[in-house]
Amino acid sequence: MSTSASRIGQRFQQRLDAGRKLLIPYITAGDPKPEITVNLMHGMVKAGADIIELGVPFSDPMAEGPVIQKAMERALHYATSLSDVLDMVAEFRKTDNETPIVVMGYLNPIEVMGYSEFAAKAAKAGVDGVLTVDIPPEEADDYISSLKNKGLDPVFLVAPTTNTERMAQISRAGGGFVYYVSVKGVTGAGHLNTDEVSDKVEQIKAVSKLPVGVGFGINDAASAKRVASVSDAVVVGSAIVRRIEENATNSDKINSEVCKFIQELRAAID
């Protein structure tokens, strides 16, 4: 197991040592409006989240299914920018200095801000890891060094199509944890096959010291439980965002519905 000093590495180690698999819920920052995000993050922690994955809205989210696409459109309706997302993290950190935060998004907003400036601002805000969907390690030398210089973990994806050679390359380049994309498809897709996931997680662990989180296609307590049994962490995104969409006009209900769902997921994987 990783002995990384980062908040993400420590959290994985503490939880796994205590026999608890990690639950990593995803929400899109600013969805359905910016002022609810920080409260919702605190609520998710109380309900049992171990790490929070915070989506950065982007106009062209190529890896997202319809649920998260619409979440990003709602957030962009209020022009939620990368800077705004970092401000939300800083606000969250005022009362929670423990829960690791991974920001997940697409390269262009970071590219436009500049890698170094982004890394400095993200570190200052209290971000722990950065997952950028559309930058593979081959293109990422400057990106990785900018993040690592500021103590941020570059989290990379491994996919069902990734061969073992690339798995090794990805885990050398990355930090925090390896995010295994459990299906060929976009976020929120179906057809999760636990046996295949189990095989892939074993393959990753054979070449990587990092813990492995699994996401894409985990949409209820039962699938979360199955995936948790074969991995270190479970990432749940679209199933949470769908609950936000269904209650978009009622902030209190968003909080209660999302937290209730996270409690269900927590109970199922523990």
């Binding site: 190529m62 890896a63 390269l107 969907v133 559309d134 930058i135 593979p136 081959e138 293109e139 990379f156 994806l157 491994v158 996919a159 069902p160 199509t161 990734t162 061969n163 690339r166 990805i170 994309v181 060929k184």
Partner: peptide
Amino acid sequence: GGKFVAETLMVP
């Protein structure tokens, strides 16, 4: 140029 895509597409 380059290859800025999600991991699933890299091997294909």
